[in-house]
């Protein structure tokens, strides 16, 4: 009996606070809210598919005309309507390779400094500086690269390189500043902050006990770093390098400013070259013929395919090792 009495009382109180009608409205509002959020989430999926579809359908003309020969042909001539992507793909890959070759060891060294060597106050300060470097927009790197760094390369770095390593065809030719090497170096500077930030986080996750035991056995800092820290965090470091690779490969403005934009494949790293992104940035707004436009979109499709592949591998890898590093944070 008391149970039933209580039930009625609760019913009455319920009615006073919130009439049933209102409750229905709230339920509907909840459903609408749920759907709104789900639609926004689906929009991300739709955009991704949309990007792929738009690039594919707009490059149909070039795909029909050139097929896979597009990827290996070096000819790029808007006048005769002949288009091949080989020089752009080559430029993209080589400039990225230079960037990684320089940025990965440097970033590791910086991360070692931040985690193992520097006193906390200095480590924090240097950390801020590296974070600021990451925030500088690509176009500023381009301005600095074109007007400050390229002349510096031409005057101080390139003559020295050709003197020391001039027997290699890589470092022959006039030191103009503008060219593949400068583009690679600027790319390295741009991805340096990202790789060092991830490497720093990876190093920090090594348990102190493991490091201390190595120190206790009489190891030096370098031995602890090489044998304990790096081997402990190797998989995370690989992920970091992959993130840097993904960033460098599609970087546009900074490269466009300094690479020289020349559609030839040259042995020397000193000579002007081009990359997929720089070709798009330079030529797209001026392309008027449908086939020219379609070839440029196809170039974009190639870049999209490469970056998607890299990103998917990187994300799966990071997911597997249980770390999450966003693209920007």
């Amino acid at each position: 009996m008391p149970g039933i009495y209580l039930f009625f009382m609760v019913q009455r109180v319920n009615k006073k606070i919130r009439p049933i009608k209102n409750q229905n409205i709230q339920k509907k509002a909840d459903r609408v809210f749920h759907w709104l959020t789900a639609l926004s989430a689906l929009l991300i999926l739709a955009l991704m598919i949309g990007i792929f579809w738009e690039l594919l359908s707009n490059s149909r003309l070039a795909i029909q005309k050139f097929g896979f020969k597009f990827l290996v042909s070096e000819v790029w001539n808007p006048v005769t309507q002949e288009f091949g992507a080989a020089s752009s793909i080559y430029g993209t890959l080589v400039s990225t390779a230079i960037a990684l070759l320089l940025a990965v060891p440097l970033s590791l060294a910086i991360a070692v400094f931040l985690v193992e060597l520097a006193p906390p106050a200095i480590s924090r300060l240097v950390g801020y500086a590296i974070e600021l470097l990451a925030a500088i927009p690509s176009i500023i790197f381009g301005m600095w690269g074109l007007f400050v760094f390229a002349p510096f390369m031409a005057e101080h770095i390139q003559p020295g390189l050709s003197k020391a390593l001039g027997f290699l065809p890589l470092f022959q030719g006039p030191p103009m500043g503008i060219g593949m090497l400068t583009a690679g170096v600027i790319l390295a500077l741009m991805i340096l902050p990202f790789i060092s930030a991830v490497a720093r986080d990876v190093f920090r996750m090594v348990p102190a006990v493991v490091k201390e035991s190595a120190y206790g056995l009489g190891s030096t800092t370098w031995e602890v770093t090489r044998k304990v820290t790096i081997s402990y965090g190797l998989r995370g470091l690989l992920g970091a390098a992959f993130l840097g690779l993904g960033r460098a490969i599609g970087e546009t403005m900074a490269v466009t400013f300094v690479i020289g934009n020349d559609h030839t494949i040259s042995k020397s790293l000193f000579s002007p070259a081009n990359s997929i992104a720089s070709t798009l940035a330079n030529e797209f707004a001026e392309a008027s013929e449908p086939l020219y436009l379609s070839a440029l979109v196809k170039l974009g499709l190639v870049l999209f395919a490469i970056t998607i592949l890299i990103q998917i591998i990187a994300q799966l890898w990071l997911k597997k090792i249980g770390q999450s590093f966003g693209g920007s944070l």
Partner: peptide, 18 residues
């Protein structure tokens, strides 16, 4: 996560065609 890594010029290309 993947989309954050797409070069911004590709997004420009997409909006151009769209």
């Amino acid at each position: 996560n993947v989309m954050m890594g797409i070069p911004s010029i590709i997004v420009g290309l997409f909006i151009y065609t769209l």
